[in-house]
Nucleic acid binder design. Structure first.
Length: 582
RNA sequence: GGGGUCGUAGUUAAGCCUGGUUAUAACGCCGGCCUGUCACGCCGGAGGCCGCGAGUUCAAUUCUCGUCGACCCCGCCA
């Protein structure tokens, strides 16, 4: 049907008669002469309808409209001098049409492809039109390249690509499962995997040594700008490894992707930070290192304080944390807004202290002793104009609020370094965290994570157990995480014991894994990367929906297909399902 | 479950705060002219339940409440 793609017509074709096919992008009808930019996935080329070439073709070309699908036959010519278009790759040539065929017509589109983006719901409803836009196609070509880069890199490093089931078993820990009713087993349900976690461990026990999969995962949780109910992971598992081995392979993969997608050399080392340090310095387990503003624990300064708020906090075992904003001029309104912002983040209050004419100014300054004031000045090296922000609360709350308040200041006062990417490994996560809701310890990463030291060495102080778990963070966003797993039955059972999961429940839920651990399971560990998030970050996009061809809305619907939808009574009967919603 | 932003021709926006006239513009669409444009140009035209429903008012696109939808955030997301 065609000899070439539109965007690939070049000077080499001059003089040749070729067939092209594509969509009508723009038409410029001069009456006596009609120009059309013909578009396909590779780009656009100008085709010319002139009565000097074909009277008939020129006449019929008057009917051609935007987004018609054309097949044209014509001679490639060098453009006359002064009419070359340096803005497009094919701008030195044009195709003089001798004959053409309208392969399909098009109604006027609900939105223009070459203009300002219409609102997102319209784009999603007519996703096929949105996907025609060259800038959108660029994203999915990049996504395609990322699949290839991932496969090339991992295969070259001895990994085998193996598939795992989508129809699998519901696991109680972690995110809410999507469930699928089983017709053959009425009243029973499959669950879609939140990740192939157990299967990849089984594959290691199955002797495959190194596994990877670019795999869809499903989590029935609320959506966010960077969260979709189905998303893609680069899932990796390796045998006979420890933390450093997994991080090294991961760095290689991330660098390959960075290089491929950003087109810049990437051979930097990714720094590592312990979880405890991240919390202490940045109040979060995923610090954005594109700006400073570290938090400082100043509880020590106020041991003898007469200021009630601080004294009470300390008495109740809480902490006092501060951060200093330097070199910015803050109005009284800025300060008030800052206080409101911190309160909205859950702070009981936010105290600001400003140094002005070598004197500390603050609503609370009258409660502070001279030595407290000079300690603050010294600790934060306060100069005139600097503003110190302080929160006093429980340790977790103070860190959380100050961590988020730090991000607010970073954005509000434009402190974030532009055009740079700051990767960070956060390591040495706690194995457990206490769930107030469930009144028990839950796995911070997942229940199969191995502790750094045997759990038996800890007596009651379970929150201090360090896991061999790690997260990869980019500019304050988690883009991957994993751990070294328990590979011995006794260690895994210890873990379940800590999680207050009864042996019979553990057997009921994960019996196959526990059995497998008893039959020569090798030491193993792995990691999973959020493929969509990586693309979104590397391509500088705002939303995960931008890198997913057919994304869901925040309510989990697909505006193009109308999913989810009702199903007929017949289907419900087959599944033995009764619904209770009208 | 909670907090917030937005919803006006096919599209993108303005008007709304401070209620009242024919609801404005650009692009698109329709008709006409145009042989070197490339976001072609010029002339003319059509196109609106101002998301939906209540309320306040003599009068509501404008104010209030509710509702639906999209988006952002908190909770949630091992």
């Amino acid at each position: 049907m065609r000899d070439k793609h539109c965007g690939l017509v070049s000077g080499d074709d001059i003089g040749k008669v070729i067939n092209l096919a594509g969509w009508v992008f723009r038409r410029r009808d001069h009456g006596g002469l009609i120009f059309i930019d013909l578009r396909d996935i590779t780009g656009i080329v100008q085709v010319v309808f002139s009565p000097d070439i074909s009277q008939g073709a020129h006449e019929r070309a008057g009917d051609i409209k935007q987004e018609y699908v054309l097949k044209i036959t014509g001679k490639v010519e060098k453009r006359p001098p002064e009419t070359e278009n340096p803005n497009i790759p094919t701008g030195t040539v044009e195709v003089l049409v001798s004959s053409f065929e309208i392969l399909n017509t098009s109604k006027p589109l609900p939105f223009q492809l070459d203009e300002e983006e219409p609102n997102e719901s319209l784009r999603l409803k007519y996703r096929y039109l949105d996907l025609r836009r060259p800038e959108i196609q660029k994203i999915f070509l990049a996504r395609h390249k990322a699949y290839r880069t991932t496969r090339d890199y991992l295969v070259n490093n001895g990994f085998y690509e193996i598939e795992t089931p989508f129809l699998t078993k519901s696991t109680p820990e972690g995110a809410r499962d999507f469930i699928v009713p089983s017709r053959l087993n009425p009243g029973m349900f499959y669950a879609l995997p939140q990740s192939p976690q157990l299967f990849k461990q089984i594959l290691m026990i199955g002797g495959f040594d190194r596994y990877f999969q670019i795999v869809r995962c499903f989590r029935d949780e609320d959506l966010r700008a960077d969260r979709q109910p189905e998303f893609t992971q680069i899932d990796i598992e390796m045998s006979f490894v420890d933390v450093d081995d997994v991080l090294a392979i991961s760095e290689g993969l991330i660098m390959s992707l960075y290089k491929e997608l950003k087109g810049v050399p990437a051979d930097f080392q990714i720094p590592r930070m312990k979880y405890a340090d991240a919390m202490e310095l940045y109040g979060t387990d995923k610090p954005d290192l594109r700006f400073g503003l570290p938090l400082t624990d100043i509880t020590g300064i106020f041991q003898e304080t007469e200021f009630g708020v601080f004294r009470k906090t300390i008495e109740q075992g809480g902490i006092i944390k501060g951060l200093v904003l330097k070199g910015k001029t803050l109005s009284r309104k800025d300060l008030d807004t800052a206080v409101d912002t911190a309160k909205a983040m859950g702070a009981g209050g936010l105290i600001w202290i400003r140094k002005e004419n070598d004197i500390l100014q603050s609503p609370i300054v009258k409660f502070l002793k001279d030595e407290e004031k000079s300690s603050l000045s010294g600790t934060f090296d306060l100069s005139n104009g600097d503003v110190l922000f302080i929160v006093a609360d429980s340790k977790d709350k103070a860190n959380d609020v100050m961590g988020r308040f730090r991000l607010y200041l970073g954005e509000r006062f434009d402190l974030i370094e532009k055009g740079v990417d700051r990767f960070l490994w956060v390591i040495d996560f706690p194995l457990l965290e206490y769930s107030e809701e469930e009144k028990r310890f839950v796995a911070r990463h997942h229940p199969f994570t191995s502790p750094k030291e045997s759990i038996r060495n800890f007596n009651g102080d379970y929150e201090s157990i360090i896991a061999r778990a790690y997260d990869l963070v980019l500019n304050g966003v988690e883009i991957g995480g994993g751990s070294i797993r328990n590979y011995r039955m006794d260690e895994q059972m210890e873990m379940f014991r800590l999680l207050n999961i009864k042996e019979e429940d553990a057997v009921e839920k994960f019996g196959f894994l526990l059995e497998a651990l008893e039959m020569g399971a090798p030491p193993h560990g792995g990691i999973a990367f959020g493929f969509d998030r990586i693309l979104m970050m590397f391509l500088g996009l705002e939303s995960i929906r931008d890198v997913i061809p057919f994304p869901k809305t925040q309510k989990g619907t697909c505006l193009m297909t109308g999913a989810p939808s009702n199903i007929g009574q017949k289907q419900l009967n087959e599944l033995r399902i009764k619904t209770v919603v009208k």
